[in-house]
Design a protein around this nucleic acid. Sequence first.
DNA 1: TAGTTTGTAGAACGAACGTTCGATCGGGAA
DNA 2: TTCCCGATCGAACGTTCGTTCTACAAACTA
Lengths: 222, 222
Amino acid sequence: MLLILRSAARVFCAKGYEGASMRDISRASGVALSSLYYYCRNKQGLLFQIQMTAFTEILARLAPRLAGADDPAQQLRALVRNHLEYSLEHPDEMKVLAHEADSLAGRERKAVAEIKRRYYRKAMEIFEALEAKKRVRPLDPRVAVLSLFGMMNWIHTWHRSGTDPGAEELGRAIATIFLDGVLENRLAARQTAARPARPVAAGERARRVPPMAAEAPARASS
Amino acid sequence: MLLILRSAARVFCAKGYEGASMRDISRASGVALSSLYYYCRNKQGLLFQIQMTAFTEILARLAPRLAGADDPAQQLRALVRNHLEYSLEHPDEMKVLAHEADSLAGRERKAVAEIKRRYYRKAMEIFEALEAKKRVRPLDPRVAVLSLFGMMNWIHTWHRSGTDPGAEELGRAIATIFLDGVLENRLAARQTAARPARPVAAGERARRVPPMAAEAPARASS
DNA sequence: TAGTTTGTAGAACGAACGTTCGATCGGGAA
DNA sequence: TTCCCGATCGAACGTTCGTTCTACAAACTA
């Protein structure tokens, strides 16, 4: 079964979800076409299990690393490092995650959206803790955090494992760009107060709580 | 014909290249299925024309804006602004660009890869000019520039035109994060020399010139 | 031993796919 | 009028798709 999921991830990654046929997966895994349906209800079920497993694993790995770092900046570095390590360890699954986010529908789509949202919320909380502790630029926090995810999730489009830096150096670079780009660091005064750098209209922060996506409609199926 | 391309972009965006059928495009454009083949050789030809047109337009818009700004930092802001404006004006085409980068094959794939590469080189040159003028962190320039593209190209996955900021504010935020994240701005001394912040082994920069991607193999077609 | 479960596989289903073919239509050229 | 040519279309071709059905072999249960 693990073999099937891994083969399916490889095929989905190489040809896209719609472009990959169950016969391709059968060939890649060495399991007969009809036998695939013993392990999953659907082609969609395969994609679902791949995505769900990946997000679950990322979150599971993240938790202890966050617990080990109490400074928000360090926590953010840990999140980036964790994301990138998984990314480079499982490039196929990661590409499927980023590429085929909209290929699911119905209940399964909802489930993946929810765990993805949990992940995003965690990053957002860290960023808010950072805002509370350090002086942060007058940026929309949603834009900032999603830009960070952008840097991380774009990597699979250009990274070549032989010649490009590994997770450690990559993570250091991206986390540094983000932190120094986001922190108000022009002069000495390191503030301890939670005061945001820009006066914020009442409710402006709260209004933006439902984030990441109001869950875009699934790709039309017909 | 423009109608066909626009409809095709909308359909490709909504269902993915492989998931979209020529019949879908026929329905969306109001042009009979067989008539589509009067304007393009292939389904692939449609995707090719969409991608080529988009990149050409982005580059065409970029040139005058770069000419209007001589400071590398301002040029970089112009590039970001230009990219984001096109992104929000043509979200469908942009999603197709980011999502279906690997769906082409053969000659057409090569052509798109080359113009994309031209775009990347332009960004790289600006970054190198920045390095020559300002003090820059010891970062792999390839990683830095591609992270910037990551922030920009990820936007289409989360941006909702009604509630999220427009190109101007978005561009300002992303360019600021990038510039302040990349520039060595901790203390006063603003250097004019081209000296990189970190000693660089001879040839290290030159070795990395072939960038963005050594052109990954196309998705297997069978 | 007999019966049930677990895993595998071949063959086939109807539907949808990309693409081609030949016919038709309208308007400028002779 | 006659001819022609760019543009459009319905119908069909052969292929491949996701999925189901049925059968069969080994392994465990009683």
